[in-house]
């Protein structure tokens, strides 16, 4: 148990250091931003300026501003948006995070499930045309930029066939289908490739050979012995997968006009919305770091092999 506490404790410390580092770097970079509140006076109303000066001491030295900002973050106060009157950034994020999270979760589930299936089929029929075509699908998924793929989906299913709405997040589940598929393409390709490699390794291992020698059929072997051993390590690439999903969500939200944080991020960038950019930057980093933490813990929990080296049973 003590090892567990130490393990998780260490992870959480890394997580906090990373977030602290990112917020600090972000803060100081923002000072250099051409078009930051200082260089962009005409955009700011005097009321806004007053509020900001009161709350964030924008007229004070940088060091003091920094401390004020960090203290604000600790309280959950990310400043106010310069784009939307004096709305707090926290509120903007809260209003927009729903669609992004839904889209992200749907995409990662769809992507990994399809990816696992493709990977396993590919491995089981290694070096046959089935393997070639599933591998090719995976390579396409990795190679074709998701914004190209997204536009293609729009063209086919929304414009020509008119089966699904072209975008906007206003028709419930229907309007989530195309963006989900578009966003799931990259994780699908990653998962398929990873699972294929793992599965081929597993299928060549002695215990699979032994299972074959006990007369169990290929599909049962794949399902019972292969699947678990090939899929558990998939957890390790969940972190990078989420990271690339964040990148993907920006363009996908833009193309499908999803009112999520990705779309907001682009808008904020293009309009130099200082506090919103910082808030979203910190949010993205925290999200990724949290995913990495969860992945590490999950992996230890799920894989009995690791329990031995980390835990103190036996």
């Amino acid at each position: 148990m003590a090892k567990w506490i130490k393990f998780i404790g260490k992870r959480i410390i890394y997580m906090l250091v990373t977030i602290l580092l990112i917020s600090s770097v972000t803060f100081f970079l923002m000072q250099k931003l051409p078009g930051s509140p200082y260089g962009n006076e005409e955009k700011i109303t005097s009321a806004q300026k007053k509020v900001m000066n009161e709350r964030y001491g924008l007229d004070k030295p940088v060091a003091e501003q920094y401390l004020l900002y960090m203290a604000g973050i600790a309280r959950g106060d990310f400043g106010i948006s310069l784009q939307f009157g004096d709305q707090p950034v926290g509120k903007i994020i809260a209003a927009r995070i729903g669609p992004s999270v839904q889209l992200g979760i749907q995409a990662i589930i769809l992507g990994t499930v399809v990816g696992i299936i493709l990977g396993i089929i590919s491995a089981m029929f290694q070096n046959t045309w089935i393997d070639t075509s599933t591998s090719l699908t995976a390579i396409l998924g990795r190679s074709v930029p998701n914004f190209v793929f997204a536009v293609l989906l729009q063209l086919i299913f929304a414009i020509h066939l008119q089966w699904l709405p072209i975008g906007l997040w206003d028709q419930g589940f229907y309007s989530t289908v195309l963006p989900t598929i578009a966003l799931s393409f990259a994780p699908m390709a990653d998962a398929a490739r990873f699972v294929r490699t793992e599965m081929i390794d597993v299928l060549h291992s002695d215990f699979i050979e032994l299972a074959r020698a006990t007369g169990i059929g290929e599909w049962e072997i794949a399902a019972r012995h292969g699947l678990r051993n090939a899929v558990i390590p998939l957890i390790t690439i969940l972190g990078p997968m989420v990271a690339s999903l964040l990148v993907g969500s920006l363009v996908i939200e833009k193309i499908f006009a999803v009112p999520g944080i990705g779309e907001q991020f682009i808008k904020s960038i293009l309009s130099n919305d200082y506090f919103t950019i910082m808030g979203l930057t910190i949010l993205y980093s925290a999200l990724l770091v949290a995913v990495i933490l969860v992945v590490d813990i999950l992996y230890v929990l799920i894989d009995p092999r690791i329990r031995l080296s980390e835990g103190d049973e036996e």
Partner: peptide
């Protein structure tokens, strides 16, 4: 039965 008992068993079962 195979040579290496360390790899002959499924580690996750």
């Amino acid at each position: 039965i195979f040579q290496d008992p360390m790899t002959s068993l499924n580690p996750t079962m």
